[in-house]
């Protein structure tokens, strides 16, 4: 079904694409919301993702990648919004190869912390790894990063979240 919709969309069928896009738009909105932090901007991001994805649907190779492809577009669009705002935080250039931090997913994380304490790259990794349940390798592939770099970002993000949590407990 998905494949059929993609083929029709690639042939220029807007209705087919709308049907296809509706299957992902909620997830994309939530993802965008985590990045931009407010409803209005998140809606702008989704609209832009719909625009770009329909415009370039012909370049999509195979239905398997539709979700990751849309997520990448969402990350790019959200990045554009943050760049315009001047609020984007770049990588800290201290990437080191590190072991995968197992068992760091806490039930006590606060979404607010994810949205406010993490850099854009850290949000990328956290969302893909712990909300969309991608493996670290898949996350690295989607973000076009080396696996070691991805691990480092994840480790740093987890440390920040743990520290924030500890701080909140103390308070």
């Amino acid at each position: 079904m998905l494949e059929k919709l993609i083929k029709h969309a690639q042939g220029g069928d807007a209705e087919a694409f709308a049907q296809l896009f509706s299957q992902f738009e909620v997830d994309l909105y939530k993802m965008a919301y985590v990045y931009v932090g407010n409803e209005a901007d998140a809606l702008d991001v989704v609209q832009e993702v719909a625009y770009r994805s329909f415009k370039y649907i012909h370049s999509l190779q195979g239905s398997t990648y539709i979700k990751t492809w849309l997520m990448r577009i969402t990350i790019n669009c959200a990045t554009d919004v943050l760049t315009k705002r001047g609020h984007i935080l770049s990588y800290e250039n201290d990437f080191e190869e590190s072991e995968e931090p197992y068992g760091e997913l806490s039930d006590k994380w606060v979404l607010e912390d994810v949205m406010t304490k993490l850099t854009k790259e850290e949000k990328d990794v956290i969302l893909l790894r712990f909300y969309h349940d991608y493996t670290l390798q898949q996350t690295a592939t989607i973000l076009q990063l080396r696996l070691g770099t991805t691990k480092t970002i994840l480790y740093r993000a987890l440390r920040k979240l743990r520290q924030a949590l500890e701080q909140e407990v103390q308070e």
Binding site: S22, E25, L43, A50, Y51, S106, D107, W109, L111, Y131
Partner: peptide, 27 residues
């Protein structure tokens, strides 16, 4: 997990689909 639940609790605006359609129509 709590984190997932928090994300799922994000309120979805009613006009989300409408905005998606606007993007598609624009393209």
């Amino acid at each position: 997990s709590d984190f997932k639940r928090q994300l799922d609790d994000i309120k979805i605006p009613e006009n989300l689909h409408q905005r998606s359609l606007q993007g598609i129509q624009q393209a």
